[in-house]
Design a protein around this nucleic acid. Structure first.
Lengths: 218, 218
DNA sequence: TACTTGATGCGACTACTGTCGCGATAGTGA
DNA sequence: TCACTATCGCGACAGTAGTCGCATCAAGTA
């Protein structure tokens, strides 16, 4: 979730070639409506947050009728799930700094920025919040996070090639271990996230990885 | 958050000596209303979850008028915050198993049970969910979690006394490190939590603690 | 171009959330 | 026991979320 990536999700005009698969008429007005509604959803989230996200407002802002939005997306949860699925299709690559420890630190820092800084933070944390109520958002979030794990795994596989970390290390587990404390502080214990906390998580994870802690037992 | 503790929060009749501080008439009907409403809140949460928690239902169930509930608690978020504050006053102590690694494993296991098993899981995760919308619940959650960190810290300080872990180790940081991956899987990445995951988190944390990773730099 | 029909716009409608004023009730202290 | 008044019950009310039936529009096709 790089800075410029999420920012683009929010402020850029959505590409008009957005197709609407699964419908009998994927082109024309339907596609234009899809783009307008999802764009309005992201804008509304950025301005008013998840608590202020209303089908009525999205409908007005996008110029698409309220009943149409309910028919196509079912409600706010459907809008959020669709936005998240759309976000997942965008390219993203983790920053490379030279060592696993600093790579993991940079990764954790990216997570903090992506969830705390407005307006992109509103979109991301809204998804986490909505996943509690809506199975559809929960599913979309799970797919999204799995994708991020896979993409972030590069920093681990490269560390294996460099010889920093033993063969057979589970990359996704390393990533989870580095970012979990960040999410924990942000969303569960509701504590401020300090630079030292990221540093600690990255160091512990990198050290454990170097010792082979993330190589699954046979 | 031991099993029998949370269960009691839910199913036992609240003690009638519940006082209502901050009001001019803390006894009598006001106190009875407080007990009835909070009990109804917990019952409703257990049966219908956070999404189904309604002031109207709580009012009907408790026999207290809807307007009164709105006046005293402000809405569902107030009800949830009050329930959480009340839960925080109940005694809780972590299980002791003999070593830091197994203590942390038991702690993580307790967290999983406390958040996934119905009905007590509904109450706990509802608080995490509501904290996104409501600053009041977020505050209550922060206080609650800080309290749990302090209580759980015993397993670390005892490990220091046993000589497993160096002096100066920050107990709360150790606890966070052990439970963060659990919360991450439960609420963010929405992945199943396996026994092996808890084991891994406990082992990594205990090893790092033994090496002095949680002793703050001067 | 004309036809078919999926998708949309429209507005009325129900159901629900949250608020308000007023009279009644019951703690609290004398 | 009595007076005072904080708190509560009551019902009416406005505002909002979500649904439904029908007329209209426009994408896809011959």
């Amino acid at each position: 979730m790089a800075d410029e990536d999420v920012k683009c999700n929010y402020s850029c005009v959505m590409t008009s070639d957005t197709e609407t698969p699964g419908t009998a008429r994927p082109g024309g007005r339907t596609a234009r409506n899809t783009a307008a509604v999802l764009q309005a959803t992201l804008d509304e989230l950025g301005e008013h947050g998840y608590a202020g996200l209303t089908v009525e407002r999205v409908a007005t802002r996008s110029g698409v009728h309220k009943a149409t939005v309910y028919r196509r997306w079912g409600g706010v949860d459907g809008l959020l799930a669709a936005s998240l699925e759309w976000s997942a299709t965008r390219a993203w690559e983790p920053e490379r700094t030279g060592s696993l420890r600093t790579d993991l630190f940079a990764l954790a820092e990216t997570v903090v920025h992506g969830f705390t800084e407005a307006p992109e933070g509103a979109v991301s944390s809204a998804s986490v919040a909505a996943a509690f109520d809506s199975p559809r958002v929960a599913g979309a979030l799970r797919v999204f996070m799995t994708d991020r794990h896979e993409r972030a795994s590069v920093v681990v596989t490269e560390a294996v090639t460099r010889g920093e970390v033993p063969e057979g290390t589970d990359p996704a587990q390393v990533v989870r271990s580095a970012v979990a404390p960040v999410y924990y502080r942000l969303f569960v214990s509701r504590e401020p996230v300090a630079r030292a906390d990221l540093c600690l998580a990255a160091r512990i994870t990198a050290d454990a990885a170097a010792r082979g802690a993330f190589v699954p037992d046979p």
